[in-house]
Amino acid sequence: MTSLLQARRLSKTAYSALWSLPLPVWLAGFFLGPMVLLIWLSFWDVKNFLLTPDFQLENWQKILTAGYFWSAYARTAVIAASASVLATLAALPCALAISFFLSPRARMVLLGLFVVPFFTSYLVRIYSWQIYLTENGIVMKLMAAIGIETGSLLNTPLALMVGLVTLTLPLVIVIQAISLLSLDRTLIDAAYNLGCGPRRVLFATVLPAARPGIVLGALFAFIFSFGDFVTATYLGGGKFTTLSILIADTVKSGQQWPRAAVVALMMIVTLLLTALASITYAYRRS
């Protein structure tokens, strides 16, 4: 009788383990494992172009005292922050329109339309922007047609912003729209009832209540822009060396992986701290 009971308990445990374990185990093996190795790697040595497991602080010293690292760090942060602000501001009217001015059916269709670009080749879309912005490209020709002479717009901050907003706008709009849609509509009616005008309702009721979504959207835009290397490479023309370009170049051109690992870890720490700060701010009671 007890053995039967034990057998049943065992099959119950096996059933739940079968479902609970695969993804965590896979991620432990092929995501957590690489991440932990990355930390260890940052202390390794390179001898005669060969990686040698070691425990030395030289990589950290080299990178953290290098002027080029800190200038790339500052540049990456400023670019990502600008893109995040820009995407947030551009997304707000769209998210408001989607959440408040459309029928449920039109809303689903529009949200669907905004989701599609997020999952289509970012590389090719950036290449298309190259065609638009390059010397004698579409934008230059169009401007010339209305009498404005411009040079190539590639390799300018504007080009960077175009690329990064292309990357992040869909995501920010969707996150903002979800948070606006989950707002309690009676809150808005109550504000009108109390005699607030549309502007006051927007700024004193809707936006503060949707703060978690707005902050979260901005955070995602920051994270994605901070890690991107495609826009900086192909629309910035390598003029704007970001941390990602630093890593890509280091890895693709030699064996200095440990130094790249230090840069990568600095990126992760920055993103974690930003995420922590934003989430605290987003859900803080005010």
């Binding site: 092929f30 995501f31 690489p34 991440m35 994270i223 890690g227 990602s244 990126m267």
Partner: peptide, 14 residues
Amino acid sequence: LIPLVVIGLAMLAY
């Protein structure tokens, strides 16, 4: 949410 180059580097090493 982890930058692709960072995952790329970590994966490559691993």
